[in-house]
Simulated assay, not measured.
Amino acid sequence: MSGMRPGSVCDTTPLQRFESQSSSSEEPSSPTAASIVAAANAGATSNPNHNNNNHVKLDLQMPTFVGGNQRPNGTGPKPMRGPRQIFQRIFVDLCLLSCVGLPMLGFSVWGEPFKRGFFCNDNSLQHPYKESTMRSWVLYLMCGVLPVSVIVVVEFFRAQDKRLRGEKYKTGSGYHICHLELPKWLLECYRKIGIFIFGLGVEQLTTNIAKYAIGRLRPHFFSLCQPVLPDGSTCSDPKNFGLYIEDFACSAVDITSKRMKDVRLSFPSGHASFACYAMLYLAIYLQHRMQWSRCRMLRHLLQFMLLMFAWYTALTRISDYKHHWSDVLAGSCIGLTYAIIVTSTMW
């Protein structure tokens, strides 16, 4: 062409120059987004009169996780764990939970409590039968659903606060499903709830072992069973006073095998151990995680209400004649002990 000076070389596009430079190097490396953008900027500054209609379209393939994949100390990218690692971790946790869940199931289905006898003049076994003030569904709701819900809510709002301050919640969890990284607060919820459920299983297993090994009769034993001796006599006969009776049968027509089994499971109190464990665990959790300065009084109020629920549950087991006072004391100690042990290694 007449406008071209002799010996001049036609300018190439920035991407072509980048490829020629990469092919001439001794150790070719894969182009990164930063190097391609730098090459494009260099071409734009070296040839300002280049026709804009012939610009190069750069298709930058961004990584799946733009943020949250760096180690806290800045040493390199944080390894990401996919669905396989997630399901492996869940499977291992379920196996550990089954170690305490299966024995509990075995106790409830096949277990037989120790057949303890009684004295006919034992006044501690002559209380009337009453329905439970603290129903089982209320106990499950307060000691099962409430702690899980509180943990999810607190961890979510902590994550929002951490993001605003630029702290560790911004790094991500390191787990991803379907090209989406799981948030760090969701991983914290899984850890805290998992520890709570495992401690609850261990506490209930400890309680059941004591129940079936001791076989203590409940305070309403006479009212519910109405025992009859092999000779046809009852505890109202004077000849049976002071005798320790082990061979007897229940004459009550409405008593079932399930109730007969339950009447021997007085020590320790399962309601008291369950309530004390769950409420103390949640109170300690709030103490460590609910640290907003404007919510201190609210936190203390919630802790007081939780502990009062456990206290009231334990007292009703005595007033409803479901347990002896020593049963409730032992159950409460079991629940409190496991709550302290589990939470002490969680932070």
Rank of each mutant, 00 (worst) to 15 (best):
F157T: 03
V138N: 10
A159L: 07
Q126F: 00
G117S: 09
P79S: 04
P103C: 08
L146R: 07
C120L: 02
P128C: 01
G111M: 05
K168P: 02
C99F: 06
H176P: 04
M104S: 10
N69I: 08
F114C: 10
P128Q: 06
P79W: 01
F87Q: 12
L94I: 13
F119C: 01
T64P: 01
R71Y: 02
K162H: 13
L141F: 14
K130C: 11
S132Y: 12
G67S: 11
R165H: 11
H127G: 03
S136E: 15
D161A: 13
L139S: 10
L105P: 01
S124P: 00
R158K: 15
V148W: 11
R158N: 14
K130G: 05
D122K: 00
R81V: 10
M134Q: 10
G111N: 05
N121G: 04
R163V: 14
R71H: 03
I151Y: 05
P72G: 01
H127E: 09
V109C: 04
K115D: 15
M80D: 09
V145K: 08
D93N: 10
L105V: 08
W137A: 15
V150L: 03
P79L: 07
L105I: 04
F118Q: 00
R84W: 12
S149L: 14
Q70S: 09
R89G: 15
P77W: 02
K130S: 10
F157Q: 07
S132M: 13
H176T: 06
Q126Y: 00
Q160L: 15
L94M: 10
M80N: 03
K168Q: 12
K130Y: 08
P77A: 06
Q70T: 08
S173L: 08
R71N: 10
C99R: 02
S136I: 15
G166N: 03
I90W: 08
P79E: 08
V66P: 01
L125C: 00
D122M: 02
Y169C: 06
K170H: 04
E112F: 04
C99T: 12
H127S: 04
D161P: 02
T133G: 11
G144V: 02
Q88V: 08
P63D: 05
M104W: 05
V145H: 03
R165K: 11
K162A: 15
G166V: 02
M134N: 09
V138Q: 15
E112K: 13
K130A: 01
L105G: 06
D93K: 05
T133R: 12
D161N: 13
